[in-house]
Design a protein around this nucleic acid. Sequence first.
DNA 1: TTCTAACCGAGACGGTACGTCCGGTCTTCAA
DNA 2: TTGAAGACCGGACGTACCGTCTCGGTTAGAA
Lengths: 204, 204, 204, 204
Amino acid sequence: MCTQSEPRRRTGRPRSVRADQAILAATRAALGDLGWGRLTIAGVASRAGVAKSTLYRRWPNKSALVVDAVAELFDEIELPDLGTLRADVEGVVGRFAALLERPETSTSLMAVVAEATRDEALRARFQHAIVDRQKVLVVEGRRRAQRRGEMAADAPGHDPAQEIDLVFDVIAGAVLHRTLIAGEPADADWTERFAALLLGGLSA
Amino acid sequence: MCTQSEPRRRTGRPRSVRADQAILAATRAALGDLGWGRLTIAGVASRAGVAKSTLYRRWPNKSALVVDAVAELFDEIELPDLGTLRADVEGVVGRFAALLERPETSTSLMAVVAEATRDEALRARFQHAIVDRQKVLVVEGRRRAQRRGEMAADAPGHDPAQEIDLVFDVIAGAVLHRTLIAGEPADADWTERFAALLLGGLSA
Amino acid sequence: MCTQSEPRRRTGRPRSVRADQAILAATRAALGDLGWGRLTIAGVASRAGVAKSTLYRRWPNKSALVVDAVAELFDEIELPDLGTLRADVEGVVGRFAALLERPETSTSLMAVVAEATRDEALRARFQHAIVDRQKVLVVEGRRRAQRRGEMAADAPGHDPAQEIDLVFDVIAGAVLHRTLIAGEPADADWTERFAALLLGGLSA
Amino acid sequence: MCTQSEPRRRTGRPRSVRADQAILAATRAALGDLGWGRLTIAGVASRAGVAKSTLYRRWPNKSALVVDAVAELFDEIELPDLGTLRADVEGVVGRFAALLERPETSTSLMAVVAEATRDEALRARFQHAIVDRQKVLVVEGRRRAQRRGEMAADAPGHDPAQEIDLVFDVIAGAVLHRTLIAGEPADADWTERFAALLLGGLSA
DNA sequence: TTCTAACCGAGACGGTACGTCCGGTCTTCAA
DNA sequence: TTGAAGACCGGACGTACCGTCTCGGTTAGAA
């Protein structure tokens, strides 16, 4: 959501919680049907059964709305412990790829990134709502692998942040490129070969 | 260019060659200044000192124009033989990163990808003008490494296309994610660590 | 006021009397500052230090509010006996002109008339609150003139209503046209010449 | 029309003359159907079969458009020589009243006056397009009456402008008040009595 | 005194029109 | 035929109000 961080006022009619959800759902539906380019604020409001002004009271523009609408999809990603590091990697790749293949995601993710290039506030919102939410999966997978003994524990004076970022860049970037730019599916075969490459690199 | 493949007519006033270049240059300048979202056709025409109709005679719409304008930037990438596979990998990563950090590239590349999600013709144009042009660098680098003996030669009945695609996804994807999505620079340190990871994976 | 004629309920918190006056005064102030076109209900409420709902509980819409706000100004007009018919005519012209030259009157009177063209209820309210209140001045002035012998008494079987209406149309219309449409001041000179013309016509 | 006074450029596609007329006609139709308050720019454009931007290229806002649309109606008023001053007066009163009783006129005239109170440019446009156009009728009627010997010729050193203005205020104002404010028809009977009053005043 | 109905402020709600902007097409004249 | 200029249609944008509504809280008069 957009303005929830503020210390909620207590006077006046409270904002409709149903409207929030209806708008976000309508946004995702519209993205799936029309894509980013054809998506219209008025159209979203209409789908949501809500006045345009109600929508603008919550989000300042199309980009911010879409970020929040898509962010909710990323909440769904979880990584159950699949027993081995290889399985965990393949699992997260599969889930991320599945997400990117949904029409509402693919069309909007890149458009938001493009907008964010010029809009610092949007970039921050995007980072917080989507990117950071993904990175925890890498952190968690790494912790498990260390617990299982598949990876060495962190050296005492060593910050693993750089390594995590790099692995995240490689995983997320590869899936992104495969599905959205190369336009090929990240199917089981590709996933397996990618995991082999990554694990080989990590163990070297 | 867009319509050059057609069999040029002979009658009437010939098209101004200067206009072509002026339009593409103006497009890149406008992308750098304004980003994809604020770029307007009329603005580009004005910068180029050209009428809108002159522009539309050459490109069917905004996306196609931007693809061609950006594609020219990718022509600049070349990969001189740096002596070792590791140096070649670091070289191509560095060049690609430098390209993505130019404002006219970063803002437009993702926007075009987003548009291409819904527009098959645009996707094809994008593939041909940008993606394929990059992939040859991987093919070339691989050939050199084999010549040097750093990589095994292709097995007789084995098609290396899959392997090339995967490596391309990893390289391009990682740089893309690092620079545009994570918003961090792909500096020398990151590049070195990435190359180590990739080469480790390849040799495993 | 608007809803005062109804048989006041007895229970519950009574309406604030101060609010009534504050709203009407704020309306006149806003009319003077902004004119009819820029006047907003929310703005009036804010000036009056009152909530919008408090305002809507009393008046059904903008037009009705403005009619009542302006009507109070017309209550101020009185016609002291100035000794002669000519002086009385000049007196009423002067007072009416002074009223029309106040910014809150000039801007709103015509706008209300325009609205009333389409709204029968508003027209009735306007007639009662403003027009009729003016006409009595003509009636009173005529009675005085007859008493003084400046005009002949009414013939027994003759209804003077038509004559009164006509004179009212001429006086009010001429001042209105002079000040609001021609945009010229109804100064002493014009008033004198107008009175001469009217009295000439009446005595003929 | 609005921008005709400028020295017409010669490059580019010329403005559609049909659009001008279609827009003005649609405005009058909409005024008649809906009145000033409900009239919508988009609605006018739609009636005229024209894009909104085409309309805004010609008129800056609703008021200016309506002034021009109504002004054309005033062009229709002419005063054929009816033989006597009395007949001429009754004639012009009748025509003016007929104009004010048309729904597109009555609803918009006062609204424009209201707007003009705050907008000097609009006031000037209104003066030129409507008020001045009416006043010539008084000038012309007066000239005829002098030619017929019904009125004395102008004294050599005397400027008749003041007298003309006054008579214009009385005629136009009375009809206006009768029809729009009092809301009574300016029928033959009223017209006759008004003419008698005015002519009595003029000859006195 | 307590109850209670109507009030009050604040502000969100569904609507609707505004005036601006831009995309892509068409029309004119000149080169 | 191309080019420059600019009007054309269409339609989304984000803003501003309207008149209604829903909150929590207040304030008399009735019980």
